[in-house]
Design a protein around this nucleic acid. Structure first.
Lengths: 197, 197
DNA sequence: CAGAGATCGAACCGTTCGGTACGATCCGGG
DNA sequence: CCCGGATCGTACCGAACGGTTCGATCTCTG
């Protein structure tokens, strides 16, 4: 029973449960690939409840994308933090996490970028841009700690590798995509930096 | 007058004209972002004509994606051929073409990959995979001519940079995206190869 | 134990969708 | 000169869409 029936039992928990359950469904079916009625059936929630908590389908979508973006960034940041102090290890951790994601049978590419490809809504565009900002910040941080002379550019090139690997894994071939991207990212490090010692 | 009115004047020209006119509209509005009626109004064609030539909206979409994929590949191949014999120049030509594309105000990312993000139809997936195959073949060719020891892997890493640069340009910041990706691609060349001399 | 509030389920609304049908029009080939 | 076929414009279809409403139900709070 994902959502309790009674009253004041937990107004905020219902919202969170809806969000949690809607995320994978919207991801695998696509934002416009499922209607509100069928979606509610999957969630075990009535339409009225959904509309009271999110106002509209777009409201749910926006909340879902923001939550997902924040979660991904937190997930990556934790993987980086757990990798110790060596920037090379931190970089390896990033691409390890990515490859694990690619290996998930449900993997269908980046949910946020997929969403942006469908809704060219202004709000969704903003969420997408902020999502890539978060990625960029994490990667630039590694580049700084690695002593790269132009960490901003290196971070951006790493971002391209991350997104490129994700696209290739989603639409072409996921085997070793993370590993190949990782090796490419490493090759950029000594080329741009005078670092490593 | 995009489509002549009379009869046997040219059955194949009508189809081509529809395809040509539909491509930019579907690109900027999104595959599901415009209905058949409005689309036909933009094309200056009646629904009956469209359905006689393409059978369904999906039929039109498939034809459009295949045509677009082939055209992009041909365009890139010509740019490579025009760049002379030096693989480095050929690589530069690829990223030059990409940056020109990014600078187009109508640029909204790769039409084929955007389509795949919306329709997870089997046919669209196949078109997308073939599209990336074409890219990969062109890039691997450059890697071979550059004497890379593992040209297949290098081609794939370049493909990631190409798609990553496109995604970043579409969703984050298009300024210098092609140039940064180009520099990253160059850095991969001496790292993977023992070549250049 | 009574009331407030959250939820359900289902009916309902207007709109839009992809797709079809039809009569009128226009043209090139025999 | 006329017929066949491609086209147009429009009306139409059933289904699905996003969203609203309402009575019944349930549960926590006072």
């Amino acid at each position: 029973m994902p959502v309790p029936k009674g009253s004041t039992i937990d107004p905020v928990r219902t919202r969170a449960a809806i969000l949690e359950a809607a995320t994978p469904v919207l991801y695998e079916r696509g934002l416009d690939g499922i209607g509100v009625a069928e979606l509610c059936a999957h969630l075990g929630v009535s339409k009225e409840t959904l509309y009271r908590h999110f106002g509209s389908k777009d409201g749910l979508v926006r909340a879902m994308l923001e939550t997902r973006s924040e979660r991904i960034a937190r997930w990556l940041a934790e993987a980086i933090a757990a990798a110790g102090h060596d920037p090379a290890d931190q970089l390896a951790a990033v691409f390890d996490v990515l490859q694990q994601w690619y290996d998930d049978p449900a993997f269908r590419g980046c949910a946020v970028l997929n969403a942006a490809a469908q809704h060219h809504d202004q709000t969704v565009r903003a969420i997408t841009e902020r999502h890539l900002d978060r990625y960029l910040e994490l990667l630039t941080g590694i580049a700084v700690r690695a002593g790269a002379p132009d960490p901003h550019t290196l971070g951006r090139q790493w971002l391209m590798l991350v997104e490129g690997a994700t696209a290739v894994a989603a639409h072409h071939d996921k085997v070793s995509a993370g590993e190949h991207a990782h090796r490419a990212a490493l090759a950029l490090l000594p080329a741009t930096a005078g670092a490593r010692g």
